[in-house]
């Protein structure tokens, strides 16, 4: 395999006395879909926030296409091609859906070009019909999709999705899984945090498991689901 697109080496992050991440290393190849799982409080969201520059790691390196990202502000990392969505969904609530997505497009485009791309992104995500609605009037699943569309509109190389499927029903989730496969087919690389195992198992090429801020397993979905350390982390020691 050639040089990985995203290379995370030995990063640690501490909040006061809490070790949120300790020595986490992982690589993501171009075009891969990697699942990031682990019990609540394992450090998944912290890892995402650190990758996009909202937190600065205490040590370690993050490389995208060989370029060191540690210490860069989030907008620089977005310009380099890595964007995340937020676990609680962080839309611009007083913006229309179209303006939300358009704002992402401004990273590389003029307002007019960004508006065109935003319409295409909305269509891609399957919500072109609500383009003129105000973001604050949307349901939670709709908001999550708008946020994905907004992230796509920045034209990223790597997209980090933090529980974007949290509030979806089965039908919606299937559509969303199909969307992510399609995006990957178009060359996007995805890292997803998800609690829906069905989605993770059917979608991911590889799964990385975090527990208490440490990487405890990595492998294909089949390998990881048989891993004793993973079973223990999820179900407790007596089950292993």
């Amino acid at each position: 395999m050639s040089q990985p697109l995203l290379q995370v080496s030995d990063i640690s992050k501490r909040f006061g006395g809490l070790r949120a991440l300790s020595g986490v290393s992982l690589t993501v190849a171009a075009g891969e879909i990697v699942g990031l799982i682990g019990p609540n409080g394992a450090g998944k969201t912290t890892l995402f926030s650190t990758l996009v520059g909202l937190h600065r790691p205490d040590s370690g390196a993050i490389r995208l296409n060989g370029k060191d990202l540690v210490g860069l502000k989030p907008h620089r990392i977005a310009a380099a091609g890595m964007v995340k969505t937020f676990q609680n969904v962080a839309l611009f609530l007083d913006f229309s859906v179209l303006d939300n997505v358009l704002t992402g497009g401004l990273l590389h485009l003029s307002v007019t070009e960004a508006r065109d791309l935003a319409r295409r992104c909305l269509e891609q995500v399957g919500i072109a019909g609500i383009a003129d609605k105000l973001a604050r009037d949307l349901s939670f699943p709709e908001r999550a999709r708008v946020e994905v569309a907004r992230a796509l509109c920045t034209q990223p190389k790597v997209l980090l999705l933090d529980e974007a499927m949290a509030a979806l029903n089965h039908v919606e989730m299937d559509a969303f899984i199909a969307l992510l496969r399609q995006l990957r087919g178009e060359g996007l690389t995805l890292v997803i945090v998800e609690h829906h195992m069905r989605a993770i198992m059917s979608l991911c090429d590889r799964i990385v498991v975090l527990n208490f801020g440490q990487l405890i397993a990595t492998g294909t979905p089949a390998e990881v689901s048989r891993d004793p350390a993973v079973i223990q982390a999820y179900l407790g020691s007596s089950a292993a």
């Binding site: 520059g53 909202l54 907008h75 964007v83 937020f86 962080a90 992230a151 920045t154």
Partner: peptide, 10 residues
Amino acid sequence: ENADAAEVIG
């Protein structure tokens, strides 16, 4: 609207 979200999308 949301400074963190704005930063993250560039």
